[in-house]
Deep mutational scan, measured.
Amino acid sequence: MSIQHFRVALIPFFAAFCLPVFAHPETLVKVKDAEDQLGARVGYIELDLNSGKILESFRPEERFPMMSTFKVLLCGAVLSRVDAGQEQLGRRIHYSQNDLVEYSPVTEKHLTDGMTVRELCSAAITMSDNTAANLLLTTIGGPKELTAFLHNMGDHVTRLDRWEPELNEAIPNDERDTTMPAAMATTLRKLLTGELLTLASRQQLIDWMEADKVAGPLLRSALPAGWFIADKSGAGERGSRGIIAALGPDGKPSRIVVIYTTGSQATMDERNRQIAEIGASLIKHW
């Protein structure tokens, strides 16, 4: 067993022997301040990774656009098919120029040779490549099948209805392509620590998230040296922004954090800054 596999296998073990965790309302004060600064709703939840206990939450059962955070769930569904012998990570998928959609920095470079399922998941999570996500959605049967996968996990809230990039439209009061912070946090925890996926697939999923290259201005910008984070960000229309993450000190994750916002007129930089400040408060009061 590799060191990384050992780390993920012992996530519940280490967490069980940690000192009790206590909620700190100071972080919620910052979440509410972010709402004021952005002029928009902000949803927040913080779960203990081992027990699933909610440590703090704000608007945990209000719907927010998922945006690209759905790509972690998508690759979880792909990995479940791999575990069941219905898919192979090494299978190569070929596609054409007509398949390319807006923001496809990886797939646009491989029109000639195609990409493997493993490479597509890596591109979808680490670079948020939209064509990679659409190609992977095709392998599982489309958005409705991802929703069905989530329902089978016990998540009857999260739903995907459309493809990239239309799913980022974020129309107010439109339930399409949305989740709730509580539902997303619980589902992410199941994917990373539950028995739904094999140990190898859980490790692969967290490795992809740990290698995320496009979430630097968010929670990662607030992390002290030595902290662990595996995350996936999302951005959408109407001032929408979000991030889902597993993080913790001492090089291992111990909490799940989900943050979503929508309806702001603020710039992307300002949305990023507010999420980073929430992260800084979380870490300060850990």
Rank of each mutant, 00 (worst) to 15 (best):
T107A: 12
T69V: 07
R41M: 00
E145I: 00
P65M: 07
D250N: 09
L192N: 12
G85S: 14
K144S: 10
S96N: 00
G251L: 07
M180Y: 11
D161Q: 12
N134W: 09
Y260A: 04
P249N: 03
D48G: 09
S51K: 01
G43R: 01
L135M: 09
P253G: 05
L199W: 10
I278G: 14
I259H: 10
G85L: 15
Q204I: 02
I125Q: 00
I125A: 00
T262A: 08
L55P: 11
E169I: 06
I283R: 11
V31F: 02
P165N: 01
R271E: 11
L205K: 02
E119L: 14
D48V: 15
I45W: 00
S240P: 05
G76R: 01
A280K: 15
E164K: 03
E61G: 04
T193N: 11
T116V: 01
V157S: 07
N134Q: 09
E166F: 13
K32L: 08
K232P: 02
T267M: 06
L188W: 12
P181G: 05
R271N: 04
M184N: 07
D113K: 06
R162W: 07
D207L: 06
D231L: 12
T158K: 01
A230C: 07
L100T: 03
H285W: 02
R238G: 05
V106T: 07
I283Q: 10
D83W: 06
E270I: 06
P165R: 02
E270T: 07
D155H: 06
E145M: 03
L146T: 07
M184V: 07
G43K: 03
A124E: 14
D161K: 02
P165L: 05
T193H: 01
A132K: 01
N50P: 03
D231P: 06
M184Q: 12
A266H: 04
I125L: 00
G248T: 08
I140P: 12
T261I: 13
E56V: 14
K32T: 02
V157A: 11
G263S: 13
A225Q: 03
L74G: 04
S51N: 02
L111T: 10
S201Y: 11
A280C: 12
G52A: 12
E270L: 10
E195A: 01
L100H: 12
N98M: 01
G141P: 04
T147H: 05
W286H: 04
L49P: 02
A148H: 13
S264E: 03
A280Y: 14
P217V: 12
K30I: 08
P60R: 08
A133F: 02
L188T: 12
E26V: 08
L247E: 03
P143E: 14
V257P: 01
T107E: 03
P60T: 09
A211Q: 06
E277M: 14
Q37T: 14
Q274F: 10
F58K: 00
D155N: 13
S201D: 05
A211C: 05
K190E: 11
W286L: 05
P25M: 12
M115R: 08
A200Q: 13
M66S: 02
K53P: 09
S264Q: 04
N152T: 04
I206P: 11
I125S: 00
V82W: 00
P217H: 11
V157M: 13
R238T: 07
R63F: 11
T186S: 09
A235G: 02
Q204C: 03
E46R: 07
V106E: 15
F149K: 12
C121G: 01
T116R: 03
A123Q: 15
T138Y: 10
G43V: 01
M67R: 12
G154K: 15
E166V: 08
V157I: 09
E169V: 09
L136F: 14
V257N: 01
L191D: 15
D207S: 11
M153E: 11
M209H: 09
A182C: 10
H151D: 14
Q203S: 12
S281A: 07
K252Y: 10
K252H: 08
A84K: 04
P181R: 01
A34T: 13
V106K: 11
I278V: 14
R273M: 01
R202I: 05
L73M: 05
T69W: 01
L137H: 15
L160Y: 07
D99Y: 10
T186E: 07
L199A: 13
E195N: 06
T112L: 15
A235E: 05
T69H: 04
P25S: 03
K32V: 04
A215D: 13
H94K: 07
E61C: 07
L247K: 11
T261H: 04
D250V: 03
V258P: 04
Q274Y: 07
L146R: 14
D33Q: 01
L223H: 02
T112R: 13
H151Y: 10
L205M: 02
D212L: 03
H151L: 11
L247H: 13
W286D: 06
Y260G: 08
G154F: 14
G43P: 01
V257G: 03
A84P: 14
V101K: 12
P172Y: 14
E62N: 01
D177M: 03
T138M: 13
N98C: 03
M184A: 08
L160W: 02
L89G: 03
G39V: 14
N272H: 00
G248I: 09
L197I: 09
W227C: 12
D174W: 09
I93R: 04
A200I: 15
L136Y: 09
A266V: 06
S80H: 11
L218I: 01
R202L: 06
H94I: 08
R271I: 09
D155M: 08
L199F: 14
G279F: 04
L79H: 15
V106H: 13
T262K: 12
T187K: 00
V31I: 11
L199Y: 02
E277W: 11
L160P: 05
L55W: 08
G76I: 06
K53G: 12
D250Y: 12
I275Y: 14
R92T: 06
E26L: 14
E210S: 10
I243F: 03
S57R: 09
E175R: 10
L55Q: 08
R118E: 04
S128I: 09
D33T: 04
E164G: 01
D269A: 03
L146G: 14
W286R: 02
S68H: 00
D161Y: 08
Q86E: 04
L282A: 09
K53E: 07
G226W: 03
G114R: 01
D269R: 03
R162K: 07
V157F: 11
L136N: 10
G242L: 04
H285T: 02
M66A: 02
K71D: 00
N50G: 11
S128H: 03
G90I: 10
M180I: 02
I171H: 03
Y95M: 07
T126P: 01
R162A: 11
I140F: 11
L150D: 11
I275D: 13
T138D: 06
E26R: 13
L47D: 09
W163R: 11
A84L: 05
P181Y: 01
E56W: 07
V214E: 14
D83H: 06
L74I: 14
D36N: 11
A132D: 02
G279T: 07
Y103T: 15
Q37N: 09
T116M: 14
E26I: 15
L282W: 04
E210I: 07
A123V: 15
G236D: 05
E102V: 05
A215K: 02
A133I: 00
L188M: 07
P65E: 10
S240R: 03
V42W: 15
R241F: 09
E87C: 12
R176L: 07
D99N: 06
A266W: 06
I93A: 02
T198M: 13
A133P: 06
T147I: 04
Y44E: 06
N272T: 02
I93S: 05
I283E: 05
P181N: 06
P172W: 06
I206G: 13
I259R: 04
R271A: 06
E270Q: 15
L247I: 13
T158A: 04
H24G: 07
L146I: 15
R255A: 10
V101W: 15
H156V: 06
V117I: 03
D36K: 15
S254R: 04
S57M: 13
R273P: 08
N272E: 00
L219V: 08
D129A: 00
G39Y: 02
I275C: 14
N173H: 07
Q97A: 12
D207M: 13
F228I: 00
T262W: 07
D48K: 14
L89I: 09
V29Y: 12
L199H: 04
A200M: 13
V82P: 07
L199M: 06
R176E: 10
E46T: 15
D83C: 06
E210F: 12
T107W: 15
R63E: 11
T261V: 11
K252G: 10
R176W: 11
S281W: 05
T158G: 05
D207N: 04
I45T: 00
S233F: 09
A133L: 02
D33H: 09
E195Q: 12
D113M: 07
K71Q: 00
P165D: 04
Y103H: 13
I259K: 02
N272W: 00
R41E: 00
E46K: 09
T187Q: 11
K30L: 14
T147R: 01
V78D: 14
I125F: 01
T138W: 12
R91Q: 12
G279A: 08
